[in-house]
Structures are given as structure tokens and as C-alpha cells.
Design a protein around this nucleic acid. Structure first.
Lengths: 341, 341
DNA sequence: TTGTATGCGTTATCAC
DNA sequence: GTGATAACGCATACAA
């Protein structure tokens, strides 16, 4: 039982609690001999410190909260992992909450984390509109940075991928493969990243003379099922476009699965592209052409912003769109077909 | 800025801080009218409560820590997700740490979480031997339950899958498919689950007359690469066994990929089975035969144990091995080959 | 039923 | 340099 406090240590070392605190925290001046005595006593007693008391007194917890809408998408867990790693480098603990696509749960998570007095908040908002109030409230009491998803009209920092560039890379690549018609599968419209991707997709497709039928734009969720259903509807419609562009790898993987089941050959009958470059994009058959998100950079920047924003009240919100990388694999390119990993 | 405390609320409601505390926490008797006055004042002031202070005073944080060796394996994230959900039902917050397969990081995480005064700890130990000291120390200061991996010789609760039954199901299935020789790919030996799976595999294979060449037992890590390399070595050896049994889906998926690249047809040339039933086991080509872990049950039991063990010092350690489910798909069975999802 | 007063373990502000 | 001592915000034993 860790019933040993600085008071215990102080008694054993023959000094005051103040000196113990100074010696152990490194702050403040302490003579070398006393510092040694304190250190030894602490070691001997197995003193470990009470983070809760420290937090109450100093109002710093060395913890940041993260709220994500979905932990089932590998992209999200990869991002969480990078954030965790980045925080770890600064000795900061991650408190993870899952909002499960539910704005009310999201709000509860924010409240809970703020009550725990985390030093900052990293959030991937569930919904561009219904998340507004909760996140706005959070912004007023501590540093908050949005990742991936963002809420329009909210004065809060955001770090994510450059969807515009990403879609340009994809569309240009498809065009170079001879694609003249394409479909799109993504998340619902009030999902900021899917919306940005769709907009950019349509713009670049138009510029390069790629036709996109209105009925061939499928908006549902970032899920495997969404990909399956989109592909099924495409097949049922009778005529396939040259390509299906997906706003997430898991959507593309669902589409691939339906193609396989329905004997549609990718990329011969149809090209398919994803988004994110999750690990399985490189493991499915055929391997998936996609754009890689700079996850480590996103995580690092998010953490840096959090650490730099010491509640400087109204600094202009930062919007950091980081460059993605096009990763060409077999699902969109005959040239690399069957090439080794 | 949340500078409003129970003192503020007390002044506005014209009562003492004690009454505010009682009214808001629900504990202790408060007259209806005062309760209402307090509630209204709290509402009006936007009082949110300070979890840190509450924790220091009551020495309960309503948070439990979880330390996992790897967040990249979908199996782990699925487990984390279930635990998060189960805790949420009890209003408990999850503090997640990633030990990254490093015993020293694991130990640091434990120390940090204990310092934060979490109410309990859920841990998937990195290593059956080098994790011992750290986990043992943790067990002495708060309730700890191990999940998935376990440390032998440690008097700590554990919840996981019944590896013995799982391997019996797999081997019996393979035997029924006419398999008479098999290989095994798993994690290193001081990984308790892989070890249990290997032992059970060898025992049941022996009982059913399935031969296993010593050179065909590959022990590395729970990773896609491990599967790739195992399969490559199998191919290089010149003669393939009838089946490759993997101790994790991601290993099997790596093996499948190598098969695909090297023009080895599964299940015609070789049957492959996985373990865990991660989502992608049902998305790869061919779809993977595997055993499904009862993740929700594992998570629920782990949380229940944590909540019931109120530091009753030396209760005998619980070992809860929950039943898995065999999931037969195309990678091991011609019968279901090409059947729809 | 309500208020007063104390302490949880630490850090920070004073004096010395 | 070092030591008392006062907060930090809340919960509770005790008194009223």
C-alpha cells in the first residue's frame, strides 16, 4: 500500500516537506547533501508521489484528453497511436474517450475530461453541426485542437490532411490511366473531411473531363458496409463507370469485396481507390491505390499546438492541412499489377 | 474559465458548501427546496465540478488504467474498445497506455497510472517473465486484472479465451478436411497465449494423427511480417504441409499474402487458419477460417472483477478462460469456397 | 436536516 | 537554502 507521502519522506530525511517537494521536483534550490538525503529516503521508502494532489495544487495534470468518434476504423486507431506516442515524448498521459458517433456522448466525454482537468483536448468531432455547442464550450475553458474532422465556423485549431491535394493526386492518376467516368463513395455530407474530398473530387474530375453521374455519388458512413452497398448499387445500375473513388480505405475494401463476390475484376473492369493508407490497403487483393495521410505529422502538430497554446485567449485559429502521398497499387494500375510487395 | 466551485454555488444558493456537496452528489439528506435551490444555482453558474479535488478527498477517481503491448493489432483495439464500453456503462473513465512491447515502458505506465490513483488496472502483459516485477508491484497497491496475456506464477486475476478449446476446434476441423500434416506460426515462447496455443495445437494434432515437423514451428511476433516470413520459409523448405495454423489472424493474413504473391492457392494447395476473428479475417481473399474471441465477455468480466475486488487482500486469483467460436470460411474449406458473405 | 471544521498530498508564498 | 504555513476544491465527522 502506497501510504508513503512527502511527509513520511520528510521525517525520514530529517527535513521539511517543502524541502522534499523541492528536491524531488527539481524546482527550487536545495543543497546537494539534503537533496541526496531526500532522494535516498524516498527511494528507500518506495515513495511514488500522488499525481492527484499535485494536480489539485498546481492545476496541471500532465494529461490530455482525446475524443474520437470511432475506434473501429484502423485509421483512427493509427492516429490515436501516433498521438499517444507524441504525448509520451513530452511525458504527457493520454485519456481516451470514444464518442461512438453520438454527439451527446461526445459532449459527456468532453465534460468528463474537463472535469478531470486535463491540460488540453484533442478532438475529432462527430458531426459538423451537432458537435458545435459542446466543442465551443470546451474551447472556452482549455486549449483544444481538432484533428481530421473539423467544425466549420468554430474558432478552434485544426490539423489534418490536405484533402484538396489528395483528391487532385487521385484524379490526375485516374485520368492518366484513361478514366473518363467515375463514382464516389464517402461519408454523409456533414462530415467535414468527406465533404472536402467530394468537393475536390468533383472539381478535379470536371477539370480533367471525367464525368460523374449524380446517381453515382454514395454518401453514407466510413465503414466497410458503405463500400459494399455502394458497389452493389453501382452494379445494379447496369453500367459501371471506369472508376470508384472512395473517401476512406475501409469503404474501398468493402467495394473490393463486393467486386470479388460478383466476379468483377479490379482493375480490369473498374479501378478503385481508397484514402488513408491503412495497413490493410496493402494486404487486400488487389492491393489498394490510396493516399497516405501524414499521421505522425498530424499528431505531432496537434500536440505541439496544444502545448504552445497556453490559453492565449483569442489567437486566430490555425488550420494546418498537411500534404498526403499518393500510393499507387494494383487496384488502379495495370502496370504494377502482380508486382511483388 | 471554470472558476466556479462549490463555494461559489453555496454563496449563490445561500447555503453551506457541505449542503451543496450533499445536494449535488446525491449522498446525504437534503431538503427538497434546498436541493432545488442548489441545483438551480449550479446550473446558472455553469458549475461542473472538479474531479481532481474529489479524487484527492475521496481517494476514488472513477477511472481505471489499461496497459496494452500493442495498439496496432486490430485484436487489441477491439478489446480496448469493448473495455471502454464496459467501463462507460459504469461511469468509469479509461486511461489508456501503450507499452509497445517494452517492459520498461510498461513499468513506467503502471507507475504513472498508480500515481494517478486509478481505481484499478487492466493489463495485457508484454512478457511472461520480464513483466513480472512491475505487475506484481502494481497488484500490491490496487486491484489488477490481466487480459489476454498472463504471467505465470503471479497471483493475479486473468480473463481470456480458452486456448485449449480453441485449438481443439481448429485441429478437429482441419482433421475433418483431411489434413495430415501441419505447420504453426505464433509469437515467441514467453508469450503466454501463443505458448498455450502451441501446446494445445501439438497435443491435439498428435491425438488426431496430424504430423508437425519441428522445423515447421515458427515463433516470432504477432504481426503480418511474421506470417509472411513463416510462409516464405515454408515454401523455401520445398514441401508444403497440408495446413498452416496461425496463433493470430494478422499472422495468417501475412501468410495469405505471401501465398498470393507466390501463386500458392489457398485452400487448394494449403489450408490456413487464424485466431481472433478480427474484421479483416472476413475481408481478405480467401476469407479466413479462425476462432472468434468472446471479446465483449472478456471485457465485461475483467471490469466486473475489477469492481468486485475491493482490495480484499489475498483472494485466490481467478482464471477465467472463456469459450471461443470456430468460424469456418474459405481458407480452410472447399465447401464454403466462393459462397457469398 | 444543515452548518462548521478538518484533512486529502502537494506546491507556492512567505519569512527566516 | 530552508522551514512553517496557507491554499487547491471537495467530502465528511461531528456538532447543532
Amino acid at each position: 500500500m502506497s501510504k508513503v507521502t512527502i511527509k513520511t519522506v520528510a521525517e525520514h530525511a530529517g527535513v521539511s516537506t517543502a524541502t522534499v517537494s523541492r528536491a524531488l521536483s527539481g524546482t527550487g534550490l536545495v543543497s546537494p547533501e539534503l537533496r541526496l538525503a531526500v532522494t535516498k529516503a524516498a527511494e528507500k521508502l518506495g515513495y511514488s508521489g500522488n499525481t492527484v494532489a499535485r494536480a489539485l495544487r498546481s492545476s496541471r495534470t500532465n494529461a490530455v484528453g482525446m475524443v474520437v468518434p470511432e475506434i473501429a476504423n484502423p485509421f483512427m486507431t493509427d492516429l490515436v497511436q501516433e498521438v499517444e506516442q507524441s504525448l509520451h515524448l513530452h511525458g504527457i498521459q493520454l485519456l481516451l474517450c470514444n464518442s461512438r458517433q453520438d454527439p451527446s456522448r461526445e459532449r459527456a466525454a468532453l465534460t468528463s475530461l474537463i472535469g478531470r482537468r486535463v491540460d488540453g483536448l484533442i478532438i475529432c468531432p462527430v458531426d459538423a453541426t451537432s458537435s458545435f455547442a459542446g466543442v465551443e464550450a470546451a474551447v472556452q475553458s482549455l486549449p483544444v485542437v481538432q484533428v481530421d474532422q473539423r467544425i466549420e465556423g468554430l474558432n478552434a485549431d485544426w490539423v489534418g490532411v490536405d484533402d484538396e491535394t489528395a483528391m487532385r493526386l487521385i484524379v490526375e492518376h485516374l485520368s492518366s490511366q484513361g478514366v473518363t467516368s467515375a463514382a464516389f463513395a464517402g461519408s454523409k455530407e456533414n462530415d467535414s473531411s468527406s465533404k472536402a474530398r467530394l468537393d475536390a473530387f468533383l472539381r478535379h474530375a470536371g477539370a480533367l473531363g471525367i464525368s460523374v453521374a449524380k446517381d453515382n455519388i454514395f454518401l453514407d458512413r466510413y465503414s466497410v458496409d458503405c463500400g459494399r452497398e455502394s458497389m452493389e448499387r453501382l452494379i445494379r445500375s447496369g453500367s459501371l463507370p471506369n472508376a470508384l473513388v472512395c473517401a476512406a480505405d475501409i469503404i474501398a475494401i468493402g467495394a473490393l469485396q463486393t467486386c470479388h463476390a460478383q466476379k468483377i475484376t479490379v482493375p480490369d473492369d473498374l479501378l478503385i481507390t481508397g484514402f488513408d493508407d491503412i495497413e490493410f490497403a496493402n494486404l487486400c487483393t488487389p492491393r489498394l491505390t490510396t493516399v497516405r495521410q501524414p499521421l505522425k505529422a498530424i499528431a505531432n502538430h496537434a500536440v505541439d499546438i496544444l502545448r504552445s497554446v497556453h490559453a492565449e485567449d483569442d489567437h486566430a485559429a490555425v488550420r494546418l492541412a498537411l500534404a498526403p502521398t499518393l500510393v499507387i497499387r494494383e487496384s488502379s494500375s495495370a502496370r504494377t499489377h502482380e508486382s511483388a510487395s
